[in-house]
């Protein structure tokens, strides 16, 4: 632990020293604002089993997200905060009790030792998975089961080496998932291999092992996307998470496919098809979800309208009908407006 702290302080000191000698870039400011209306076909908000878009028959808030970035020579920082339900109560962790504060999305420093090698320390968006908290980073407005059940963010220190534009490798030490300070020490190790075999195709092979949701476990993840033609893009996310203690809930396996087709300059249609299974734990049997989400992105300058229809199925009947009776199916319609600046 002492060694890690020494490395972080050494990196920070070097950054300060070099900052006096090298030119600075302008401060970058960017962010987004989002709001949505959702209607659950069974009029029951409990049918939302994934993150965000949880209200029913309501014009609701997502979040305002503000990011700052500055680079001084080889050193840079990113600080990103979000305010609003998507960035507060629905993100983990909420900085204050009762969901009245904000969520840090990114807060880290980075140093590029060379063009190929860099180190980063702080709190960062997770390297696991296809979807992210920010609505600007996702095509669909609702989120997948894989996103909801995986890590959102990881605090830690990582090193990245870029062998070429087609291959890079990251390795790092991390806290347990989604915490600003470790409750079980710097107890997870993670890595990411990025390969870009052909132009337009990028694949990330990710592993994170150590303290996480439900105790200690290991998650293996494949996230890839391929811009096959000017108009057609295909994305894939597949992951497996095993908690060491087989009596604890939270182990899962799943895959999601993301085909998207641009029908016009400003309009892209997309689909997310997902299979997701919570694995058996203790005496509780496994349970499986399938979900199909039809989404359109209509862009007008910085604004994107996202109409969406989502259908979920689970034969174990975790959903509710309008009468309150349990049901195997759920459906919802939502219309979101996301402005990126």
């Amino acid at each position: 632990m002492k060694k890690i702290l020494t490395a972080i302080f050494a990196m920070a000191s070097t950054t300060c020293a070099l900052a006096q000698e090298t030119p600075t870039s302008p401060l970058e400011i960017s962010g987004s604002v989002d709001t949505y209306f959702k209607y659950d076909f069974a009029k029951d908000p409990r049918n939302a089993k994934t993150s965000f878009v949880t209200d029913h028959n309501s014009v609701s808030l997502g979040m305002i997200d503000i990011a700052l970035k500055k680079k001084t020579g080889k050193a840079s920082f990113v600080g990103e905060l979000s305010f609003g339900p998507r960035g507060q109560t629905q993100s983990i962790p909420d900085a204050a009790a009762a969901g009245s504060s904000f969520n840090i999305q990114n807060l880290y420093v980075n140093y590029d030792f060379t063009d190929e090698f860099s180190m980063t320390a702080g709190y960062m968006g997770t390297f696991i998975g296809y979807e992210v908290i920010s609505p600007v980073g996702n095509f669909n407005y609702s989120t997948s089961y894989l996103f909801t059940n995986g890590p959102f963010q990881n605090a830690g220190i990582k090193a990245t080496y870029k062998f070429s534009d087609k291959v890079s490798l990251m390795a790092g030490l991390f806290n347990d998932w989604n915490v600003y300070s470790a409750s079980r020490g710097v107890s997870a190790i993670g890595g990411q291999l990025m390969v870009a075999p052909v132009e337009g195709w990028t694949a990330y092979l990710n592993v994170l092992s150590g303290a996480g949701f439900g105790g200690y476990g290991t998650i293996e993840d494949l996230t890839t996307s391929y811009q096959i033609t000017d108009k057609f893009k295909l994305g894939l996310n597949a992951a497996n998470y095993d908690i060491k203690d087989s009596n604890v809930f939270g182990s899962y396996i799943g895959a999601a496919l993301y085909p998207q087709y641009a029908v016009a300059d400003a309009v892209t249609l997309g689909l997310r098809g997902e299979y997701f299974q919570y694995k058996k734990y203790g005496t509780t049997p496994k349970t499986s979800f399938t979900a199909v989400t039809f989404t359109a992105n209509i862009k007008a300058g910085g604004l994107t309208f996202i109409p969406e229809v989502r259908l979920d199925h689970n034969s174990d009947k975790p959903f509710y009908k309008e009468s309150g009776a349990i049901a195997p199916n759920a459906g919802q319609f939502s219309l979101a407006a996301v402005y990126a600046f």
Binding site: S30, V78, E80, N106, Y108, G125, V132, V136
Partner: peptide, 8 residues
């Protein structure tokens, strides 16, 4: 576009 780490 801004990636998950806040970089463009």
């Amino acid at each position: 576009k801004r990636d998950r780490y806040g970089n463009f």
